[in-house]
Structure formats: C-alpha cells, structure tokens
Design a protein around this nucleic acid. Structure first.
Lengths: 165, 165
DNA sequence: AGTTTAAGTCAGTCTTGTTGACATTCCAAG
DNA sequence: CTTGGAATGTCAACAAGACTGACTTAAACT
C-alpha cells in the first residue's frame, strides 16, 4: 500500500516484497483456474482439455507439434486429451494439404460452444479485476508478466498476441 | 505497447485484450513454476511439496487445517505430502499443547535449507522481472493480482502479507 | 534408397488430486 | 460423569494427467 506509485526506489526488491509477489501469483492463479475448473468438473474433462481447446481456438489450423511447443507437454500427454476431444466431436483434425503428415486442428461448433463457455467465465474474472485496478495497473500487470516469462515463452506469447491484432 | 500509460479509456476491456491477459498469466505461470520444478525433479519431490514447505516457512507452527485452507486441497492429499516431508526430516509435526488433536508444523534445518534453495530460484526470477518492469509496473501488477483473487483467498493473502511485515 | 520428420500408439511409472472408512481428541448436553 | 457429536488427522484405494521409453506408420527430404 505504501510503496504503490512511489518513485524509483529499489526498496520493493527486498526478499519480503518478492515473497509477497510470489504468493500473489500463487493465490491469483488459484482463483484464475477455479472458474473453468468448476465447469469442466461437470463433464469428463480437466484443465488439460481446456488448454488444448483454448489454443486451438486461438490459432485454428495449428498443428499438433505447434500445440506441443506452446503447452510444454509430451505428445503422449497431449494425444490422450486430443483423442477424447476428437471422439467427442469438439475438435476436428484435418490432414494437411501441403504436408500430409501434419494434422491441422480446428474446433467444431460444439467445441466453439464449450470454448465460449469456459472463456466467458475466465474473462469475466479478468474484466472485473481490470476494471477494479484501472488502466495503469493493467499496463503494469502485463509488463511484469511478460518480463517473468522465459524468452522462448515470451516469443510464443507475443506472436499469438500479434496474430490476434 | 500502445495502451501503456494511456488515459482512462476502457478500450483495454475488449475480449481480445482480456484473452491476452489470460494468456499472459498462463505463460508467466509456466515460467514461474519452472525453476523450482527443475530443482524438485532432482529429488523425489513435486510442486505439492514445495507449496507445503513454502507456507510452513511463512507461518511456522501453523496447523494442518490452516494449511489446508490456504492450499485448497483435501487433507488426505496434503497428508501424503506432509508424511514424506516428516519422514525425510524436512518438517517437524509437534502435537498441540492446548489441543492435542492439532499438529503444529515447523521446518527443520534441513527443511529450511531446501526452502531457501527453492525460493532463491523463484525470487531471482521475480527480482529480474520487477527490475525490468520498474516500480510503477510492479505496483500495478500486484493491484491486478489482488483484484483477481477470490475474496476468501485475498483475505488469506493479505493476512500473510501483514504477518510478514 | 535411406534418413528424417510428424503423428500416433502401447506400456509402465510418478505425482497429486479425489472419496471413503477409521482413530483420536475435545467439548458440551444430559 | 458420561456419552455423543464435532474436529483433527491417518490409512487405503482409485483416477487424472503428467512423464519416459520403445515402436509404427506415412510422408517428405536428400
């Protein structure tokens, strides 16, 4: 509260301040995932399905390999999730035209409906947090998050960001 | 970049902006946990052990029930983790003096050493992100994170924050 | 033709979450 | 004082979702 918009002091880099930042991330992430988790629990899906659906929606036609890089999981792990999504007709995997080895992933209408349901819940929380915090805080929020990312992750984040305008 | 320190516009509340916020949290959290995960992988421990160690260090003498509320898992789940930590002599569980049902949890020296190792790694990342982003961004970062938390979580976060000065 | 790459599969393990049953301790009402 | 209920913690079994390792198939590259 006291160090809020202060000058250029470096006092906020004490171990205690850093610890508080770590805990803030922990607690916020817990709430952040709680809304979609509640929805997913009512079906036979989990957080892994949500992640796949989110990024397929974000980059329709993306390949399996691409998704693996973003999610940072093994293909075996992703495959289990993808298989059930394809079986349940939430995701369509089309064979690549130029390279037939590749599978391009798309959400079906059913998949889009679930995506909307999940992201509506998550966006509602972000929206109210953003509104409560104000534009300046939001800018700072995103600056710090970007600075926290590993370079490789930041690269992927930024390229998604640009593709979405 | 363009919406950085801008005025009081509400343009940043478009779905696209909110989506970017969601993705930023996702990618940042991935990097955020990567450092301790790497250390833990070399021993027989996981993220759950880290969380327990972190909060026991933060509030020495805390009870199991207390920890459950913070971590939002079942007591059975926490108990497995706690048992292995006690067996390995990283944590000491003392029977409560006034209420013998309670176990008060403390880190041993060995436990403190691991806590330091883990949090050093995590703090290093936070420190460099904070430094790169600057004090104003950090203030905004924390404001938004607090606003994202469920009221109950925020209450717990704030009480830890105060206890640590 | 031989190698590499993309994707998928099968089997087995580990962590970490879950529920259900149970033991111990405390406390308060009869 | 005792007894029954609530709180605290433990044990056992199971499921999700991550992992590794070995392997197949098909297509592309050289």
């Amino acid at each position: 509260m006291s160090e809020s918009s202060g000058g250029e002091t470096l006092l906020f880099l004490t171990d205690e301040q850093l610890r508080q930042g770590i805990e803030a991330v922990f607690f916020a992430y817990q709430s952040f995932t709680a809304d979609p988790d509640r929805i997913l629990a009512t079906m036979a899906y989990g957080r892994a399905h949500h992640r796949a659906i989110h990024f397929i929606n974000r980059a329709p036609g993306t390949t399996v390999n691409n998704l693996l890089a973003i999610l940072c999981v093994t293909k075996q792990s992703l495959n289990r999730v993808l298989r059930s999504l394809v079986e349940d007709e939430l995701v369509e995997a089309r064979v690549g035209k130029v390279d037939k080895r590749e599978r391009h992933l798309y959400l079906t209408e059913k998949g889009e409906a679930l995506e909307r349901k999940l992201s509506d819940a998550q966006r509602a929380r972000m929206r109210s947090a953003y509104r409560a915090a104000g534009p300046q805080a939001v800018a700072g929020f995103r600056t710090v998050l970007e600075a926290m990312m590993d370079p490789e992750m930041r690269r992927r984040y930024l390229s998604l960001k640009e593709s979405g305008v």
